[in-house]
Simulated scan of single mutants.
Amino acid sequence: MTEYERSRTMPALPEHVFDQVANIDQLDTWLPAELHVHAQDLPAVNVHEDRTDEDTPALLRAERDQMRLEWGTREQGNYTGWLQVAGMDTGTSEVTVHLSFFDESHDPGDKAVSDALDRSLERLEQQVRLRVDNAAG
Protein backbone atom coordinates (compact mmCIF):
# COMPACT_ATOMS: atom_id res chain seq x y z
CA MET A 1 0.00 0.00 0.00
CA THR A 2 1.19 3.49 -0.86
CA GLU A 3 -0.12 6.59 0.92
CA TYR A 4 0.12 10.30 0.19
CA GLU A 5 -0.99 13.33 2.19
CA ARG A 6 -0.96 17.08 1.71
CA SER A 7 -2.37 20.02 3.68
CA ARG A 8 -3.05 23.64 2.86
CA THR A 9 -4.45 26.63 4.74
CA MET A 10 -7.61 28.17 3.27
CA PRO A 11 -8.75 31.77 3.80
CA ALA A 12 -12.23 30.98 5.13
CA LEU A 13 -14.16 29.40 7.95
CA PRO A 14 -14.34 25.59 7.80
CA GLU A 15 -18.08 25.60 6.99
CA HIS A 16 -17.46 27.72 3.89
CA VAL A 17 -14.57 25.53 2.77
CA PHE A 18 -16.56 22.35 3.32
CA ASP A 19 -19.52 23.73 1.35
CA GLN A 20 -17.17 24.19 -1.61
CA VAL A 21 -15.55 20.78 -1.15
CA ALA A 22 -18.80 18.83 -0.82
CA ASN A 23 -20.68 20.44 -3.73
CA ILE A 24 -20.72 17.59 -6.22
CA ASP A 25 -21.58 19.96 -9.09
CA GLN A 26 -18.38 21.93 -8.45
CA LEU A 27 -15.87 19.11 -7.91
CA ASP A 28 -14.42 19.71 -11.39
CA THR A 29 -13.37 23.21 -10.31
CA TRP A 30 -10.76 21.85 -7.92
CA LEU A 31 -10.14 18.15 -8.59
CA PRO A 32 -7.27 17.21 -10.90
CA ALA A 33 -8.27 18.34 -14.40
CA GLU A 34 -8.06 14.78 -15.74
CA LEU A 35 -10.70 13.44 -13.28
CA HIS A 36 -14.43 13.95 -13.75
CA VAL A 37 -16.99 12.82 -11.17
CA HIS A 38 -20.52 12.02 -12.33
CA ALA A 39 -23.11 11.47 -9.63
CA GLN A 40 -25.44 8.52 -9.88
CA ASP A 41 -27.45 7.65 -6.80
CA LEU A 42 -25.22 9.09 -4.06
CA PRO A 43 -23.04 7.86 -2.56
CA ALA A 44 -22.51 6.03 -5.89
CA VAL A 45 -20.56 7.99 -8.49
CA ASN A 46 -18.58 7.25 -11.64
CA VAL A 47 -15.12 8.72 -12.05
CA HIS A 48 -13.80 9.26 -15.57
CA GLU A 49 -10.03 9.46 -15.88
CA ASP A 50 -8.76 11.14 -19.05
CA ARG A 51 -5.34 9.48 -18.77
CA THR A 52 -6.80 5.99 -19.18
CA ASP A 53 -10.12 7.04 -20.80
CA GLU A 54 -11.87 4.73 -18.33
CA ASP A 55 -14.85 5.10 -16.05
CA THR A 56 -14.52 3.65 -12.57
CA PRO A 57 -17.46 3.00 -10.22
CA ALA A 58 -16.76 4.75 -6.92
CA LEU A 59 -18.34 5.95 -3.71
CA LEU A 60 -18.33 9.52 -2.41
CA ARG A 61 -19.60 10.47 1.04
CA ALA A 62 -19.77 13.89 2.61
CA GLU A 63 -19.96 13.93 6.41
CA ARG A 64 -20.86 17.55 7.19
CA ASP A 65 -20.87 17.10 10.96
CA GLN A 66 -17.26 15.89 10.72
CA MET A 67 -16.24 18.26 7.88
CA ARG A 68 -14.99 15.20 6.02
CA LEU A 69 -15.28 13.89 2.46
CA GLU A 70 -14.46 10.21 1.83
CA TRP A 71 -14.20 8.32 -1.45
CA GLY A 72 -12.96 5.12 -2.96
CA THR A 73 -13.36 2.61 -5.75
CA ARG A 74 -16.52 0.54 -5.42
CA GLU A 75 -15.77 -2.86 -6.86
CA GLN A 76 -12.01 -3.33 -6.89
CA GLY A 77 -11.07 -1.63 -3.62
CA ASN A 78 -7.84 -0.38 -5.22
CA TYR A 79 -8.00 3.16 -3.96
CA THR A 80 -9.45 5.28 -1.14
CA GLY A 81 -9.08 8.84 0.01
CA TRP A 82 -10.38 11.42 2.38
CA LEU A 83 -10.37 15.18 2.78
CA GLN A 84 -10.67 16.78 6.22
CA VAL A 85 -11.42 20.45 6.90
CA ALA A 86 -10.34 21.79 10.31
CA GLY A 87 -10.95 25.27 11.68
CA MET A 88 -8.06 27.36 12.94
CA ASP A 89 -8.13 30.14 15.55
CA THR A 90 -7.46 32.80 12.92
CA GLY A 91 -10.77 32.33 11.05
CA THR A 92 -9.02 30.24 8.44
CA SER A 93 -9.11 26.50 7.82
CA GLU A 94 -6.67 23.72 7.15
CA VAL A 95 -7.57 21.20 4.47
CA THR A 96 -5.82 17.84 4.51
CA VAL A 97 -6.13 15.31 1.68
CA HIS A 98 -5.03 11.71 2.17
CA LEU A 99 -4.85 9.07 -0.59
CA SER A 100 -4.24 5.32 -0.21
CA PHE A 101 -3.45 3.04 -3.15
CA PHE A 102 -3.85 -0.65 -2.33
CA ASP A 103 -2.89 -1.82 -5.82
CA GLU A 104 0.53 -0.71 -7.09
CA SER A 105 -0.72 -0.72 -10.69
CA HIS A 106 -3.34 1.91 -9.78
CA ASP A 107 -0.73 4.25 -8.18
CA PRO A 108 0.47 6.85 -10.72
CA GLY A 109 3.65 7.43 -8.70
CA ASP A 110 4.97 9.91 -6.15
CA LYS A 111 5.62 12.86 -8.49
CA ALA A 112 2.31 12.57 -10.33
CA VAL A 113 0.27 12.23 -7.13
CA SER A 114 2.17 14.97 -5.28
CA ASP A 115 1.77 17.37 -8.22
CA ALA A 116 -1.94 16.54 -8.52
CA LEU A 117 -2.52 17.06 -4.78
CA ASP A 118 -0.69 20.40 -4.81
CA ARG A 119 -2.60 21.61 -7.90
CA SER A 120 -5.95 20.46 -6.49
CA LEU A 121 -5.42 22.21 -3.17
CA GLU A 122 -4.31 25.35 -4.99
CA ARG A 123 -7.43 25.24 -7.20
CA LEU A 124 -9.60 24.66 -4.13
CA GLU A 125 -8.04 27.68 -2.43
CA GLN A 126 -8.79 29.78 -5.52
CA GLN A 127 -12.43 28.65 -5.47
CA VAL A 128 -12.72 29.38 -1.74
CA ARG A 129 -11.19 32.85 -2.27
CA LEU A 130 -13.68 33.58 -5.07
CA ARG A 131 -16.57 32.54 -2.86
CA VAL A 132 -15.35 34.55 0.14
CA ASP A 133 -14.62 37.62 -2.02
CA ASN A 134 -18.06 37.43 -3.70
CA ALA A 135 -19.82 37.05 -0.35
CA ALA A 136 -17.96 40.04 1.08
CA GLY A 137 -18.40 42.24 -1.97
Rank of each mutant, 00 (worst) to 15 (best):
Y4K: 07
E5T: 15
S7C: 05
S7R: 12
S7M: 05
R8P: 02
P11G: 11
P11V: 11
P11D: 14
A12K: 06
A12C: 09
A12D: 08
L13H: 15
P14N: 05
E15T: 12
V17I: 05
F18Q: 10
D19H: 13
V21Q: 00
I24P: 01
D25V: 06
D25C: 04
Q26H: 13
Q26I: 10
L27T: 01
L27C: 00
D28W: 12
D28V: 06
T29N: 12
W30C: 02
P32I: 00
P32S: 01
P32A: 01
A33T: 15
E34L: 09
L35P: 06
H36G: 00
H36R: 13
H36S: 09
V37P: 01
V37Y: 02
H38I: 13
H38N: 11
H38W: 07
H38T: 15
A39S: 10
A39R: 08
D41G: 04
P43V: 03
V45G: 03
V45N: 03
N46I: 11
H48F: 14
H48V: 13
D50G: 09
R51K: 09
D53G: 02
E54C: 06
E54V: 09
E54D: 13
E54P: 08
D55K: 06
T56Y: 13
T56R: 13
P57Q: 02
P57V: 05
L59P: 11
L60P: 08
L60A: 04
R61E: 13
A62K: 06
A62W: 03
A62R: 03
E63W: 04
R64E: 06
Q66C: 09
M67I: 07
R68K: 15
E70I: 15
W71R: 02
G72A: 01
G72T: 10
G72S: 01
E75C: 00
E75Y: 08
Q76W: 08
G77P: 08
N78D: 12
T80A: 10
T80V: 12
G81L: 07
M88D: 15
M88H: 15
D89I: 12
D89M: 11
T92D: 13
T92W: 13
S93D: 10
S93H: 12
S93P: 03
E94L: 06
V95G: 00
T96P: 04
V97W: 14
H98A: 06
H98T: 14
L99T: 06
S100P: 07
S100H: 14
S100A: 10
S100Y: 05
F102N: 03
F102M: 03
E104D: 14
S105R: 15
D107H: 00
P108F: 04
G109A: 02
A112Y: 03
V113P: 06
V113T: 13
V113N: 00
S114A: 05
D115Y: 01
L117W: 00
L117V: 04
D118E: 11
R119Q: 14
L121H: 00
L121D: 03
E122Y: 12
L124A: 02
V128F: 04
R129G: 09
R129M: 09
L130I: 07
D133P: 03
N134T: 15
